[in-house]
Nucleic acid binder design. Sequence first.
DNA 1: CGCTCAATTGAGGAGTATCAATGATTGTGG
DNA 2: CCACAATCATTGATACTCCTCAATTGAGCG
Lengths: 200, 200
Amino acid sequence: MCPERDDARVVARGWIARGAMLEDGRRQIVGLSLPGDVILATETIDTDMAAWALTDAVTLDAAPLRSAVMEGRDVSVRMLDAWRRSRSAERLRLARHVIRLGRLSAYERTAHLLLELYERQSRLGTTEPGVLHLPLTQDVLADILGLSAVHMNRTLQQLRRDRLVDYRAGRTILRDRPGLALAAGLSVIEDVSDESLPGD
Amino acid sequence: MCPERDDARVVARGWIARGAMLEDGRRQIVGLSLPGDVILATETIDTDMAAWALTDAVTLDAAPLRSAVMEGRDVSVRMLDAWRRSRSAERLRLARHVIRLGRLSAYERTAHLLLELYERQSRLGTTEPGVLHLPLTQDVLADILGLSAVHMNRTLQQLRRDRLVDYRAGRTILRDRPGLALAAGLSVIEDVSDESLPGD
DNA sequence: CGCTCAATTGAGGAGTATCAATGATTGTGG
DNA sequence: CCACAATCATTGATACTCCTCAATTGAGCG
């Protein structure tokens, strides 16, 4: 395989956003990559996609692991599973994101995303219950949820008034997670760790 | 691996929609599966996702091929490539769909989707230039694009007035593809066949 | 202290949704 | 062969979500 095709990286630290910038300045973030997630260069280079670091971020070259996975060479089962889990979870998140953007209101979208990020972050390690370390400006949040920054702000205020979430840059508190789940309008956010391992 | 995990199917004929139904009746279609595309059961069973046949459809069991791919057993290179191409193209389409729903207007979304489907269908085989075989009701189209059926209708009328598209059930004519691309507001729809083979 | 960047607020308007009918077409049983 | 039901496309009227523009406040920070 051409070497440049094999550019895969694993996020080691920080938050990275993948998305596209339109000519007229509109931006849509397609997904967030957190530590442990794999980013394929083909996802950004082949298309008009790009990736931005939202915080100080460190990524590691995952090309060796990747070609091993691809070519069926021996990788530890744990590694292989981790790879598949990660890719599979990402596909699921993409689908959820489509549903959010297509059918949920701004209020629902926000609740839904915050819950997903909380879930995701909990799985990454120690978190005080209900606290979400969210290093995103409202601008970025808006570009994830397909909203204007102004409306993003107002939506967050509404969630605060409703005592569901207390947003502040860096440290967001989910005051009422059951309430949030209700507000998200979608049944329950499943625990992705229960997921089987389709491995694309 | 558990057998039920390995339920993968390949679409042989027909159009299949994957998506979710919300409790209150809202529906969002996440993607369309056309002949040659792979559908993983885990994409529908693990979550609140479902799949609907939009036309008479036939799918084949792809579990054998899949486990072969997964376990690195010998599959013809062509097969392996086809698998990866398919999965990779799907990921790209999901990302594009997110951008459509997040940042494009109804008019832009529609133009964008029609072009994508035309591209996709051309690659499947013989098509008269400019003719898109589109076996979708406006209702379904609306559920793909995150619009109400009424607004979907009005948007299609607008495209017709602008002499870009002539929609009628089953047979849609893209009268002015450059114009459509312009209307789609996104640079160019890339030719996915040029794509490299990341293979998740 | 004047920057700059993020968050906030207000006012007005564009884009879509919703509700309720009306045609148009097609299949179906009498 | 016709009435009927069913589905899809279309239209009008109205309401609401969300956007845009413009300005203000507040919080670091050199």
